[in-house]
Design a protein around this nucleic acid. Structure first.
Length: 571
RNA sequence: CGGGGUGUAGCGCAGUGGCUAGCGCGCUACGUUCGGGACGUAGAGGCCGGUGGUUCGAAUCCACUCACCCCGACCA
């Protein structure tokens, strides 16, 4: 490609809407252009890179036994009502009507359709296992798109679905896919973490996320300093400090004027936060029915809302608003489970780790000391709802937990039989029994992967593309191109590189200063930069420099192709 | 949806009631330059986000509205 023929130009200044590095650089280098919030045009440079990523994914999926197909993005809403996922997706579902008034959706994912496809094509255990995948545009009306391609409303996703006869067969496929994912990310130059993840409301046993550690990430990953434990904070378990039991005291009221926080309470009474109990109020929805839920946990710990939501088996969960708190007869700032009834109460087992707690007295400006479970209060459910936090200890090895931010670029998931049961995708086993197919699903956000790769690989001058996903491999810079000899030599070298199969971007602008070209080359971040100029030409050489190298080497003109090749082979 | 912010040329911005709306970069033409964002001369490019008001007069004041960005609840 010649620079003068390229669609997009580079920007000299950072566009003001971009804050994260990948967003800023993708706009400046002319990779993407925004159309609406969370909707982007992929310009030729980005598209080349995305196609390379897709091809890496294809190769790994095919190697894992996958078959590529293509499912429709436009689907009838009915399909989503059958599985109850219309409600689950809620406002995230883009919906529309066709000309005859039939309700349609732009698909956010494809479990429903693929399950129906398999249902009508699979009858016997002999047809299993199957691994099907596609690379296709998904539509999700996200409440808050952000950071360029990191979080968008229309995006390309590789989604794969596995169909197995039983759990152990699924386990095998799952392991294969985990390995395929590791291969994909390694080949894209991304050092991802594979983390245990929440398996969500659908059920399913296992789920793992692939996260690229970066400060601008949206997820928190908990890792252990002592072992290989890696988990999303939503899922992670940490061992919190033990509190020694004391001789039981009497329940006693104390005046606590103006004190509404755990920190304030602990300070005022001179006790550690772990000697208090925290009360939090949520509203949980089953369908359209909202119910208040009283949640209590030891004062030094935080509630993990994902764990709570799973424990409640509810469709939606949010903090209660002030009037809802009052309507439930609760006193914000001084609430506890002691003496409260008529509301569902959930507690974390940490309330058993310690005693003589300071708790709210359920009247303003008053707390109680000496509260003990279950002597003084009972709960409807006692289950782990604690958020693992850095500094806590690893449940596997006793090491110390650490927290890292990360971008989720892939997710694999054992679905079990939810979809096959609700949609009737069964098979006949060797004994003639009709059984639901066991499913798994596996996603990679292709555009997000590109953004994450840039987030991970850039410096103050611009993008540093990992070789396998760079839009072009070599950036040939011609200096003083008004000099005809140089122009001719540049053209010849460009042809030579192309003929050798080296994807080359040739900066053939005759009217730009050297500095402009070098800066653009740094910004665009192609792996190898070549410079042809009168000076070099006089010596019969070309300058060659890797994007991350400080020094250029000179290579005789005749050896350029080989030199570039050897550079690119080294990953 | 809650909170914060921004809409003026392709990009970055200035312009708080006064008449033909400005600056830098970029763009076009010509000339001089040519190894890390050159210079000169001459140009092109604006429903000042939208609607409605106030006023002799509105980019500027008021109301409504739309869009976009950032922080929180969701996900690849």
């Amino acid at each position: 490609m010649k620079f003068t023929r390229m669609l997009s130009r580079t920007l000299r200044f950072d566009p003001s809407e971009a804050e994260t590095a990948s967003h800023r650089l993708m706009l400046r280098a002319g990779l993407i252009q925004q159309v609406a919030a969370g909707v982007y045009s992929y310009l030729p440079l980005a598209w080349r890179s995305l196609k390379k990523i897709e091809n890496i994914i294809r190769e790994e999926m095919d190697a894992a036994g996958g078959q590529e197909l293509m499912l429709p993005a436009l689907q009838p809403l009915e399909l989503w009502e059958q599985t109850g996922r219309r409600a689950a997706f809620g406002d995230n579902l883009f919906s529309l009507q066709d000309r005859s008034g039939r309700a349609m959706v732009m698909a956010p994912t494809h479990e429903e359709v693929i399950t129906n496809v398999v249902k009508s094509n699979v009858q016997s255990y002999r047809d299993l296992p199957l691994l099907l995948y596609q690379i296709q545009t998904k539509f999700r009306d996200e409440p808050r798109p952000r950071a360029g391609l990191i979080r968008v409303r229309e995006f390309d996703m590789k989604d794969a679905y596995s169909f197995n006869a039983d759990d152990s067969s699924l386990d095998d496929t799952y392991q294969d896919m985990a390995q395929a994912y590791r291969n994909v990310f390694r080949r894209c130059g991304l050092p991802v973490l594979m983390a245990e993840a929440d398996s969500g409301a659908i059920g399913g046993k296992d789920s793992h996320e692939f996260l690229l550690p970066t400060d601008t990430g949206e997820d928190t990953v908990i890792t252990c300093s002592g072992c290989a434990y890696v988990a999303n904070a939503e899922k992670a378990e940490g061992i919190y400090p033990e509190v020694e039991l004391e001789a039981e005291e009497e329940l006693k009221e104390v005046a606590t004027p103006g004190i509404k926080t755990i920190a304030g309470l602990a300070e005022a009474l001179g006790v550690p936060e772990s000697k208090t109990l925290k009360a939090v109020f949520y509203m949980a929805a089953q369908g359209n029915e909202w119910e208040p839920v009283f949640v209590t946990i030891r004062g030094d710990l935080e509630v993990n809302e994902v764990k709570l939501k799973n424990a409640l088996h509810c469709d939606d969960l949010r903090f209660a608003e002030d009037q809802e708190v009052r309507a439930a007869g609760l006193v914000a700032g001084s609430a506890s489970a002691v003496g409260i009834s008529g509301i569902r109460k959930v507690a974390d087992p940490s309330i058993e780790n310690g005693n003589n707690f300071v708790v709210g007295a359920n009247k303003p400006d008053t707390h109680m000391t000496g509260a003990n479970y279950p002597r003084d209060f009972q709960v409807d459910m006692l289950t782990d709802i604690a958020l693992a936090q850095p500094g806590q200890l690893c449940a596997q090895c006793g090491g110390t937990l650490e927290a890292t931010r990360g971008v989720e670029v892939g997710h694999i998931f054992k679905l079990g039989t939810f979809f096959s049961e609700t949609l009737g995708a069964n098979y006949l086993d060797a004994e003639g029994q009709n059984l639901p197919i066991t499913m798994g699903c596996y996603g990679i956000g292709v555009g997000r992967l590109l953004a994450a790769a840039i987030e991970q690989n850039h410096d103050e001058r611009g993008i540093v593309f990992p070789h396998p996903i760079a839009p072009y491999q070599a950036h040939l810079v011609g200096l003083n191109l008004s000099n005809e000899e140089v122009a001719a030599a540049g053209e010849e070298l460009y042809q030579q590189l192309n003929a050798a199969g080296i994807e080359t971007l040739y900066d053939d602008r005759a009217d730009q200063a050297a500095g402009v070209k070098f800066n653009d080359a740094d910004l665009m971040g192609l792996p190898v930069r070549l410079v042809i100029s009168p000076r070099n030409l006089n010596n019969g050489v070309v300058e060659l420099r890797g994007r991350q190298e400080d020094e250029a080497e000179t290579v005789p003109l005749a050896d350029v192709v080989d030199a570039v090749r050897s550079r690119l082979d080294v990953e």
